[in-house]
Nucleic acid binder design. Structure first.
Lengths: 177, 177
DNA sequence: GTCGACCGCGGAGACCTCTCCACAAGATAC
DNA sequence: GTATCTTGTGGAGAGGTCTCCGCGGTCGAC
């Protein structure tokens, strides 16, 4: 049985976090706990790390992104779709810096199943589309691609597009070594 | 005039930091200050951030890397040289995690002139070699390449090589969009 | 030597992340 | 309604980063 006050607390934390992150992307966990009127212990029991909390908050953003895939694939060639999708993802990461950080480093395997999984699935679908019409090399790996995406996000804004172009060219050519 | 005790302190800090980082890559700044027998204030006045300190420590590593460039270029084709050099860099970053972190994110422009500059110069030289014999596209940007390198470092060890291969293929192909 | 002027010191302290556990407050059984 | 069991609480605290500033040690002038 889930205790009723527990569920309530969780909701309050989420609300507080949403508000806090909206006005300052770098809010401290402390502050969120305080805003939510709970102790740090409670905050951390619900979300064992800052990333976990952030990913929960940006869940909708992720769903939006994932849902866009079929549309893009219907409208453009696989490579174009991948380009547009990736630029969208990077823009999202950039808009909310915390989101980029959470989706990038080592968060992976462990916590992020709910967000990381779908994102990888989306990339997989895009890559598959390209593989089956031959416009993307067969050995392309979704996880690698996401990792490279992290570099785009970290780079200066005006470099994201050229860097992505380079990566896409790399994905297009047949393996050389 | 530089006060004598100041210079001495700086030396002690560096020695302590080298030792501390050697035995634990994640040592706290606190601990280093303590080891060096100075207050945190002094530590931070000399090295305004953790990255600054790390870059100072791994200066030799960087020099080694930079010096290897001409040798590699003499031995192999530009693309091969670039591949070997980059794998070496990534290995270094991985060996000393802190080093990778310091060379990657936003540290750039500001602090890292002494380390960042030479690394970019090395990459520039490698890319130029490839551009002049036509094996690397003319619009390749050293800074972009270093950024992508960060992704290699963050990725799982066994993915670095395939990812690099993909990037190199991208660098080889002529711009498509 | 002696004496200011001033540079650099280092610790106190503000604020952070994250853990641990004595205790309080729901849920359940009767 | 009461007793009991269980789940979750929240704050104290360990350890971190980084800043600020009163005070003491150094250096150049004499």
């Amino acid at each position: 049985m889930v205790r009723s006050d527990a569920r309530e607390n969780r909701a309050r934390i989420l609300a507080a976090a949403r508000e806090a992150f909206a006005e300052d992307d770098g809010t401290s966990m402390n502050r969120i706990a305080q805003l939510a009127g709970v102790g740090p212990g409670t905050l951390y029991r619900n979300y064992p790390s800052r990333e976990a909390l952030i990913l929960e908050i940006y869940q909708e953003e992720i769903e939006r992104l994932v849902d866009a895939v079929p549309v893009l694939l219907a409208e453009s060639s696989p490579v174009q779709a991948l380009r547009r999708w990736t630029l969208d993802l990077v823009a999202g990461m950039r808009r909310k810096h915390a989101f980029g950080a959470a989706l990038s480093p080592d968060t992976h395997q462990s916590i992020a199943a709910r967000s990381y999984g779908p994102v990888i699935a989306a990339i997989t679908r895009l890559l598959e589309a390209g593989k089956s019409d031959g416009s993307i090399r067969a050995d392309a790996e979704p996880v690698d691609f996401l990792q490279l995406t992290g570099a785009l996000w970290r780079a200066a804004p005006d470099r994201a597009e050229p860097m992505l172009a380079l990566i896409l060219d790399g994905l297009g050519s047949r393996p050389s070594s």
